[in-house]
Design a protein around this nucleic acid. Sequence first.
DNA 1: GAAACTAGTTTCCAATTGGTAACTAATGCA
DNA 2: TGCATTAGTTACCAATTGGAAACTAGTTTC
Lengths: 134, 134
Amino acid sequence: MPVCVFLAKSNSNMRTRKTATKSLACKVRITAITDTMQVLSGKWKIHILGALLQGGKMRFMDLLREIDGIAAKMLSKELQDLEMNQLITRTVVDTKPITVEYEVTEYGKTMEPIIDEIANWGVFYRNRLHGKTD
Amino acid sequence: MPVCVFLAKSNSNMRTRKTATKSLACKVRITAITDTMQVLSGKWKIHILGALLQGGKMRFMDLLREIDGIAAKMLSKELQDLEMNQLITRTVVDTKPITVEYEVTEYGKTMEPIIDEIANWGVFYRNRLHGKTD
DNA sequence: GAAACTAGTTTCCAATTGGTAACTAATGCA
DNA sequence: TGCATTAGTTACCAATTGGAAACTAGTTTC
């Protein structure tokens, strides 16, 4: 990934400053981050993906019980979003009381590195907080 | 990372289902993700960190010009949040018009893998959209 | 026939988020 | 004197987010 910000001499003072001249690579990166965060927007999507990545095929009620604090309305809405983005599939199973299975797609599994990095950092963060007072 | 969800027989029907019995590791993971996302909350923090990680030391106005669409109020507030979490430092420089330099701390640099993964995925996402129609 | 389980939907409300625009305050420059 | 630059702050407002609780609707079990 090339460096994003061009260096140039300011004419007001002689310090080196970063100008408004943005490279294409920089804009691409900003767009990329915006895209990803839009797909993962909201309080719950990462948790839903995290649960499905670890638990495999799961039903609506499974997820409702597994993801602490989420309400049915939110779960329903977030699942729809994830399905629209093709990160998960929704399959109706014709059991006695009808059940619905959700599963991460192959495409959805490409999110795993992101979620893992986020989880790793959170653990690191906790350790730093009460662990060493550096 | 151990598997999160315990498998158990449901007594209502004889399918294998995921119960509400969550392992400690699972709760730790959920907490970790929540922590990280709280530190990175809002529309701009990842972009600010991204800019500072690539551009090095930058001033308020540099960031305002570099990060497309952000308003001074938001930039100011997000910088304060990041500083409180010790991800960046704020240094007042005694120049003619006073300037302020922001820089990512060593601790803040531990966010780089997350941001890179997010940026990578965003690029991958764009390629998939208009590239191959699979 | 009532209760319970499935997977949601609907309504209503409160808090948060974030945007615009104007303003402060100190300094430099023409 | 007046405008530009620095780094913000403040006030006001609109949209989004998300939570609680009630409700739908079909099936099964007691």
